[in-house]
């Protein structure tokens, strides 16, 4: 369990950010479920709950999700249920339980770049950007590839481009972390494939996406080729939930299922 020496509830993002960078151990508090697992001694905890960062809204062709929005809000949002055939509600709905999802937050989950994240994998196949208080707005992919750095994630933007998307995950127990997850989307013939929980963080399978986008016909064979390509261009590792070899094999299966599901829509 972490200890908090002090706690602030800033009313502007600037105050929050100043507080964050003023000491090394100062830390932003999201839903705290993950922080709680560690035994970090935090000098000042920065509570974002007074900054009105809990929203899901549509604006200027983007869906915006505030950092303090909970997974349960994502799961039950009618806007998100209707967008991208509900990939985001679906991605988070498997995680632990309702009362858990009423706690954990979108900002923390994206900012932390967890390898196992179901949300990040799903967001990756949408046209997603993040807004960081200091570093500003950038694509999710760019953010994921940046080295970790202190900042505050304020919101996530998703271009509302009518993509059709699907997310897949393989779990042993239904309430466990995924052994592997994958997401696939398609808009105007452009396909995007991402695989996460490898167990490293989610990554786009660019070559496979390209292969699929370029394919003249989509049949079992071309789909399988693309899925295979994805499992070959990405790297996989071993941890307690699965070996690299198994993950690689499963990557092909989940991607294939994702493509098929998108095509069926």
């Amino acid at each position: 369990m972490f200890t908090l020496v002090d706690l602030v509830q800033p009313e502007t993002l600037e105050d929050a950010y100043q507080s964050l960078i003023s000491k090394r151990s100062n830390t932003v508090l999201g839903g705290c479920a993950f922080l709680k697992l560690g035994s970090k001694r935090i000098m000042t905890g920065i509570d974002l709950s007074k900054l009105n960062l809990n929203y899901i809204r549509e604006q200027h062709g983007f869906i915006e999700i505030g950092a303090m929005t909970t997974f349960r809000d994502v799961e039950t949002s009618s806007l998100l249920k209707e967008s991208f055939n509900g990939i985001l509600p679906q991605a988070v709905s498997q995680i632990i339980g309702v009362q858990f999802r009423n706690v954990v937050t979108v900002g923390a989950s994206v900012f932390s770049k967890y390898g196992f994240s179901d949300l990040i994998t799903a967001l990756l196949v949408l046209d997603t950007e993040v807004e960081l208080y200091h570093d500003g707005r950038m694509s999710l992919q760019e953010f994921l590839n940046q080295p970790p750095k202190k900042d505050i994630l304020t919101k996530v933007f998703i271009k509302n481009d009518q993509r059709i998307a699907s997310c897949q995950s393989l779990r042993n127990s239904a309430s466990d972390f995924p052994i592997l997850n994958a997401a696939v989307s398609q808009a105007d013939g452009r396909w995007t494939i991402a695989v996460g929980a490898r167990p490293l963080k989610a990554e786009l399978a660019l070559q496979a996406s390209e292969l699929l986008s370029q394919a003249n016909v989509l049949n079992d064979e071309t789909i399988e080729d693309a899925a295979k390509a994805a499992s070959e261009e990405l790297t996989f590792g071993t941890n307690v939930r699965g070996s690299a070899e198994y993950r690689q094999a499963m990557s092909k299966v989940l991607v294939q299922r994702g493509i098929t599901e998108v095509l069926a829509c």
């Binding site: 697992l37 042993n172 127990s173 239904a174 309430s175 466990d176 972390f177 307690v240």
Partner: peptide, 23 residues
Amino acid sequence: RYDQKGRMQTNSFMQYKIPCRKD
């Protein structure tokens, strides 16, 4: 499960999965 030094790796409900309702 244990690691190579004999430390238990499955010491929470997060790592040791008892069946949940869906299982």
